[in-house]
Design a protein around this nucleic acid. Sequence first.
DNA 1: TCGCCTGGGGTAAGCGCTTGCTGGGGAGGA
DNA 2: TCCTCCCCAGCAAGCGCTTACCCCAGGCGA
Lengths: 349, 349
Amino acid sequence: MAVTLADVAARARVSAATVSRVLSGNYPVAESTRNRVLRAVDELEYVVNGPASALAAATSDLVGVLVNDIADPFFGIIAGAVQAEMVTPAGESGRGGEKLAVICNTGGSPERELNYLTLLQRQRAAAVVLTGGAVEHPDHAAAVATKASRLAASGTRVVLCGRPPIEDATTLTFDNRGGARRLTEHLLTLGHRRVGYVAGPAERTTTRHRLEGHRAALAAAGADQEAERLTVHGLYDRASGYDATLELLRRDRSLTAIVAANDTIALGVCAALRDQGLRIPEDVSVAGFDDLPFSADAVPALTTMRLPLHEAGARAGRLALGREPQPPGGVAMVRAELMARASTAPPRG
Amino acid sequence: MAVTLADVAARARVSAATVSRVLSGNYPVAESTRNRVLRAVDELEYVVNGPASALAAATSDLVGVLVNDIADPFFGIIAGAVQAEMVTPAGESGRGGEKLAVICNTGGSPERELNYLTLLQRQRAAAVVLTGGAVEHPDHAAAVATKASRLAASGTRVVLCGRPPIEDATTLTFDNRGGARRLTEHLLTLGHRRVGYVAGPAERTTTRHRLEGHRAALAAAGADQEAERLTVHGLYDRASGYDATLELLRRDRSLTAIVAANDTIALGVCAALRDQGLRIPEDVSVAGFDDLPFSADAVPALTTMRLPLHEAGARAGRLALGREPQPPGGVAMVRAELMARASTAPPRG
DNA sequence: TCGCCTGGGGTAAGCGCTTGCTGGGGAGGA
DNA sequence: TCCTCCCCAGCAAGCGCTTACCCCAGGCGA
């Protein structure tokens, strides 16, 4: 039914082997023969049978990218960057070569994460990129580590982007702790002492690290007496930021700054403050994390820690393809940069 | 090296055929045999070889989802919803059955769109979902139509979500024209007469349809004398909205409302107006389109046309899996709903 | 002139799984 | 008791491609 290699071979009056070699281009073929084959391919509109070639060659051109939430630009940016690395470098005719980046949305669910990992293993994916914070439940962590080893053992490259290192995987960690610490230091330097914190879901590494950085800064300044009481956990979304802010204000109406675990939450924080009649930054300063595109022109522009998500994603993509050398020890840290903008200012009085 | 069907068969003391049948569950197997096989599968941690089974069965469990920009929540929401439909309905043990939704980011580029289509054809994808507006260049439209037919011919289901129907594909179109018209009518009803419009890229169907709806409303109210001059094209992003707004104000400082082609642009519009010292909605009303999550709690809350993106994506997913009957004629229209919020109000005076 | 090398191309053996067909044996009917 | 019939399992033929291996025909040095 479908056009096969054999059909092309027949039309080009060569053997199937020759056609295969022309298409994969890893074997000397005489110019004239090559042209004949290529013409036949075009005329027949032949498209390689992926599964068949994957089976025979024991490799596939699939690369999996796991994200917690594609609807969140944080992941969208990383995933987009990874995928952009997969396209054939300009000039190549598009014949073979390019990989297919598969973006898989786990929705933050550990089961689905494992499920996708299995699916990708089944597809004999060439590589898998795990993005975003990991869930910290020990069972799950072990399960993921096991899967990762198994994938690595079967030749699938495993790359982590934005989560703590594990064995058998190349890792790009984000400096969440250090970044969070610098961010809170910025607030302390401005003179704030009563700083609220809206954290993400408790069981995520990203959440914990950012919170730890925040606490470390407070502790170093001796301003951590009430840190516990001024921390509220929620999801990494706007609504959580809104609700958490109301809760924080309920607990302590006198706080002069709120740090959010990420920019999306920060937007919710701003909305809640505004609804409570508080001005930003005159009454309360607000800071986020990630520096997503919308943060720069929120009103007021959001102070945040910039994470080079696009660059990190691109690098993860290259690592997945083996186009970039491993960092020493298989682990590289991506730094966050303070973007001090209009949403933070010295407290009143 | 890797565990194969044969290994499992040997351990369970049955033939490979039996193992295969147990795993796919489409053939009667005695209870005791089944258990023996399942145990062997677990003990050996066997994972099916996807390519091999795809080759033998001439079907694959890949479903492609093409989006213009994953970093844009519009697409993120649709893609996430499609993918969520792929998971096995609760209760099933996860053995076989589930599809792998592959999200492919075209970046709006026609070449990459075709490229991905070829890649998916090569993988013998079970289905392909094309989301978002189509590029209107006739050559490209023809190329896509051809590819779509070829895919359909080779058994791949083709589903369109948010673009105009083409042959051989099931389509979920968005009522962009009608929605845009109702939105502008809302503004006209409020009393606005000088309404600016920030459109998307000129060659997109979505752009054209929304603009046409807008113009139709103006024309019906006899308010379209300057429509041409009060329209500025840009990309579907914030920066374009910002720049376009400055341009609109330059052309006519007296306009009392600006309609943006989508919510993201609208946010840029708001930022620009604010920077120009204009209040929303007192001085200028602003309206968007799509009703993305952030729109409801922007400041002021954005008036916009709600498109049920999640529902549409989910339905597209079900259509792709053949789990939902085709709509009559293969085409269904998804309506937009007016969400009148705080960013629009009667003009002053 | 002859043997040898080498570039170019064919042959065929799988890759791991699915599935149509075959076959063995127990249960039930005659 | 013998014969059907049915239920389950095995056999084996591919699915379309890759690649190790073999072979042939020139070209070249001796």
